[in-house]
């Protein structure tokens, strides 16, 4: 479903992704973890072309992102993304946030889009918030709306960029539950997160990055039980000790 082949990326002179090779198959849930500045957010932002790469190739759902005929907007209808900072449209109600892309991009009729939106709000557990503005929701609720907004396009892949990092501890679970449901429904997911409990329970594979490189990848039980690289051992030692 997603394939990185020898991908390199620089921000000016900063080499942020170094020779990345990674494959994610359909229905797989991959958690990407690693210290700040390791390139994990940049990695998933390359998948929907929010970032471009300088060498190598990325193939998403059978099409190369380097193809001259490649259309980022078309790709993004199949790849949903959820951000750390929710990024709901503040001047629109929850319902309008969710129905905007389906009506404007897919040409769905307003009534049909609203029906889909209400089903999704039900699915993320806030059916009563359709008419509310984002400012009047808690962080956890906003993030669940953001997930519903991405799902409204019926994507094949969902990318999560630290979806719970801006949330109060008690709101983290309500978002993780929605993500867990999604994973159980067979969604292909790439999740950048520090939630190691989620990674352990839900991920099929964990990818550990440091300084722009994939240092280690493997099944969660292997990665958490017996990390191979000293860097991963050190990282896990720090974040799991409390």
């Amino acid at each position: 479903m997603i394939e990185f082949r020898d991908v390199d990326k620089w921000f000016g002179s900063l080499h942020v992704l170094k020779r990345i090779n990674l494959k994610v198959s359909g229905g797989e849930v991959v958690v990407v973890c690693g210290p700040s500045g390791s390139g994990k957010s940049t990695l998933i932002r390359c998948v929907n072309r929010l970032e471009s790469i300088q060498s190598g190739e990325i193939i998403v759902d059978g099409q190369s992102l380097l193809d001259p005929k490649f259309d980022p907007s078309k790709l993004r209808t199949d790849v949903g993304m959820v951000f750390q900072s929710f990024n709901l449209y503040p001047h629109m109600t929850v319902l309008q946030n969710i129905t905007l892309a389906p009506t404007k991009v897919k040409g769905l009729a307003a009534g049909e889009a609203e029906k889909v939106a209400k089903e999704l709000l039900d699915r993320v557990g806030i059916p009563d918030k359709a008419g509310v503005y984002p400012a009047n929701l808690s962080g956890g609720q906003q993030q669940r709306v953001a997930i519903a907004r991405a799902l409204a396009m019926k994507p094949k892949i969902m990318l999560f960029d630290e979806p719970t990092s801006a949330l109060d501890p008690e709101m983290i679970n309500e978002v993780l539950e929605v993500m867990t449901d999604l994973a159980h429904d067979g969604m292909t997911m790439v999740v950048v997160t520090h939630e190691m409990g989620f990674a352990r329970r839900v991920a099929h594979r964990v990818v550990f990055m440091d300084e722009g490189q994939i240092i280690e990848e493997g099944k969660p039980e292997t990665f958490f039980g017996a990390p191979q690289s000293p860097r991963a051992q050190q990282f896990l030692g720090k974040i799991l000790s409390h």
Binding site: K74, T77, M81, N87, Y89, H91, K104, K106, A152, M153
Partner: peptide, 27 residues
């Protein structure tokens, strides 16, 4: 306006022009 709001808009499949017309300019 935070850049990530624009990124969120285009990541739903809106084109740059649509993101400006429907989100960025109205805000």
């Amino acid at each position: 306006i935070p850049k990530t709001l624009f990124e969120a808009a285009v990541s739903t499949g809106l084109t740059m022009a649509q993101a400006y017309r429907l989100i960025i300019i109205p805000i």
